[in-house]
Structure formats: C-alpha cells, structure tokens
Design a binder for these strands. Structure first.
Lengths: 117, 117
DNA sequence: ACCTATTTGTCCGTATGTATG
DNA sequence: CCATACATACGGACAAATAGG
C-alpha cells in the first residue's frame, strides 16, 4: 500500500491519509487519469474504517485533486492546461481579499455562490 | 424549531438543513454573533441523527457562515461589510473560469492554493 | 484550582440507496 | 442481472475543548 497513517498521532486519520495521497500526487507516483485504490481496499490495508477513508477522499475531492463517482472510484483529475488569464484573475482576487481581510473560506463561498448563479 | 427538513425528498437531509439555516441567515432571523441550537437539540427536534446535523453545520462552516468550536457550539460569523472591489473581482474571475471551462472545485482549489502561498 | 456538564470532533459499525461497468 | 463503489443515514463510543460553578 502506497499510503500510510500513524494511529498514535494526534492528527486525524483522514487528514493523515489525505496528506499521504497529496504527497504521492506531488511526487508524481500518482498521475492524472490514474485511479486510486477503492476506499474498501485502503481501509482493509491500513486497518481503518471505510468511512475514514471516504472522508479523506472527499476532502481531496473538495480540493479538486480527485474526481469521485459512484461505481467508478477515485480518479486523479488533470488540473493542467489552465488558461493563464484565469491564474492572473485568481492572483488579483486574492490580493483584493487580503486587503479586505477576507478569509479563504468566505472567499471560496463567494466564488461558489457566484458560480452557481 | 426554526429549521425544517423533508425526509421524503431526494435532496440529502444535511443539504436541506444547511439550506434551511442559510434561509434564516438571509432573512435576518439569525444574525451575526448569535448561537445556533446545538446539534443534539436539532437532531432531537427534527428526529434525525446528530451526525447528519453536524455534517450540515460543517458544510456551513466550510462556507464561512458559522464558527464551530467544541464546547461552545455554532456561532454565526459576521461576513458583512464586504468590500465591493472584492465582489467585482469575484465576478471577473468566474467569467474567466466559465470561459476556460474550469469547474468550481478546481477554481476554489486554486484560490486556496494561492491564498496559502 | 478543581470539577462537572455541555458540545463538537473523530472513529468505528451497520444498513440501505444509487450510479457505474 | 449482477458485482463494484461511493453516498447517505443511523447508531454507539470516546476524546477534547469550552463554560460555568
């Protein structure tokens, strides 16, 4: 098993697991389009509950790193090929947010609201 | 009880509950600094599981609408007084994202990344 | 300084639903 | 039709932070 968790740590298991997946993504062991082991497999291998694994996977999904779908599993998304204008707009927005002392959670909430409008 | 859910709906209970809280926030029934009823209370009143309520509360916390802390409960944050420049930057960003066919999860992930940098 | 009750956080277990292949 | 896999919901248990006496 690629991933590791330390049950004696004070860091929540699902956070440890999510961090472990992020590491593998960063080092390129896991690449875009590849499929992560099913939650049940990971749970069995690490001897933790399937819900704990699912919570870690959902955290990664919320970050846009993986795509979760029923019956299909967890697939690494390709966050590549992003338009440079978008990245510029992101930087400008964050500058504005910092100036207004607006937190990241509020900011992303605003984004979601505007996006669904 | 202020909040309502419909168990026969296909919409998840925790989403219904979170939406119900958002409505009360929007109409001003709940205001900044006020405390939401404890998860246990809500669960008992609506006859749903406490975990379902907690999940709804955590969803609201992720949106920056409430502040959750152990032993203290759920308190409405003050997300008022947002600078109009920020709102303009948000709209500009979302336009750019739509043009590039960038999903909302990817977008918020980019925001978080830039914000923590 | 201590104790107790309250409240959210985490984790495990189980069951059922739903989409995919 | 069937197996797989995530989604939701319920139940129980203990830990940790907070508030108040």
């Amino acid at each position: 098993m690629l991933f590791r968790v330390d049950p004696t740590s004070t860091v929540p298991l699902f956070d440890q697991l999510a961090a472990s997946v992020r590491t593998e993504l960063a080092r390129g062991t896991l690449r875009a389009g590849e499929r992560l082991p099913s939650a049940r497999e990971v749970a069995a291998a690490l001897d933790i509950n399937i819900h704990t694994v699912l919570k870690a996977y959902q955290e990664l999904r919320d970050e846009g790193l993986i795509d979760l779908r029923r019956g299909r599993g967890a697939v690494v998304t390709e966050s590549a090929g992003l338009p440079p204008e978008l990245l510029a707009a992101v930087r400008a927005l964050v500058v504005e947010a910092r100036r207004g002392e607006v937190g990241v959670t509020t900011l992303t909430a605003l984004i979601r609201e505007e996006y669904s409008a």
